[in-house]
Design a protein around this nucleic acid. Structure first.
Lengths: 207, 207
DNA sequence: TCATTTCTGTGTTGATCGATACATAAATGA
DNA sequence: TCATTTATGTATCGATCAACACAGAAATGA
């Protein structure tokens, strides 16, 4: 398959490197704000090469968001699985979020959260895909909390869904906070606020 | 002034009613997603009438967001002043937010939070205005918490800035949550999570 | 009545949008 | 060598963007 595709004139640019550049543009400007001109210029190619290699703006965005989750988001969500307790898992998840969202050498906030918030007939697939990814993230949080219940760390009647919703919402808010230029310290203050809810939530469930 | 302006052919549409329609379009589609065609059609006028009455798309947006804060946002922020305690003030503020963001007869989430998140040279003034409004909201929260400290409800070393940042961030996250179709119950679960942090934050400050 | 002022609807402006046509270049297999 | 295949650069496509020119309509004051 791969061997057969080596016929014809070879591509003169690195497809993965160009995709990463496209990701940065979408990340900074959002889906509608990023024009084909912007993208092609950042990728160092002309628009026909872009369309030949990726198909369309929509397809390019979908590939870019996939790359984003794998490269930029992986570390954050890995914390959920690796931490020994649910409490530590949530805390590390939020702290890594604060760190990632305040990196000064890349766009602030999250591409998944901010990439395409305004639905439109011409952007239906884009919005649906981002929504699906956000829903997956919510499920990952819920699963980790449920594991905490199963392992006896949290009371049996702990509301995992509600808690997961809360922490996911805090993370989404941090994207907007980061876009407003919040410092890492300010984002960590939000993390501290969210974690302050932990004890009360666990105790309330027991009562 | 007003009398002098009554010369010439009178306007055949209600300027305020049309502005409200424009607000709804910006609210649903965001600044870049709302075209002049969209706006004029929803307002029931042609684009020259739009430009004659409001000046430009940017000026129309600024008027629309001002109307939004006065009409849609007033009730939410009034809760801060009216509640007898800081704790109740924050709780009512968040509960009214949950109610407002889940109204099914209007766009979900907040125009101030979601209207223009991606900065661009052509949208600088828009983004700056929304950022200013968000900063004002943060200040209002901080002021209310400081009043709680002054009145002895909260310990003297309570970190008002950090707490205000946390609650503002939760509200911003609720906008994205609402855009994802969250029910009022789901938004109230987030409110409960945020309020669960209250006791811990107050106690930690005392320690 | 009539000059002045302001608004309305039609039609259009140059710019930019996402997406391609086309000719040429550079690789392959036969 | 040469037909085939794929990529590249130039130069555009029709559609839509924000904004406006212009002429006619509807009010005013004199």
């Amino acid at each position: 398959m791969n061997v057969m595709s080596e016929r014809g004139r070879p591509r003169t640019f690195d497809r993965n490197a160009a995709l990463r550049r496209a990701m940065d543009v979408f990340w900074a400007k959002g889906y509608e704000g990023a024009s084909i001109s912007d993208l092609a210029a950042a990728m160092g190619i002309n628009s026909p090469s872009l369309y030949a290699a990726y198909g369309s703006k929509e397809a390019l965005f979908l590939e870019a968001t996939d790359l984003y989750s794998r490269v930029e988001g992986a570390d954050i969500w890995l914390a959920l699985e690796e931490a020994p307790t649910a409490r530590l898992a949530i805390e590390r998840f939020l702290r890594r979020t604060a760190k990632a969202y305040s990196q000064t050498d890349r766009p602030q906030g999250c591409l998944i959260a901010l990439g395409a918030l305004h639905e439109d007939s011409s952007r239906g697939a884009i919005c649906a895909d981002l929504r699906r990814r956000r829903a997956e993230n919510l499920t990952a949080l819920k699963k980790r909390l449920e594991r905490g219940v199963a392992e006896g760390e949290l009371p049996a009647d702990f509301n995992c869904r509600a808690a997961a919703t809360f922490f996911a919402t805090v993370q989404h808010g941090m994207s907007i906070q980061a876009r407003d230029g919040a410092s890492r310290a300010a984002l960590l203050a939000t993390v501290a606020g969210a974690m302050a809810a932990w004890k009360t939530m666990a105790d309330t469930a027991e009562a």
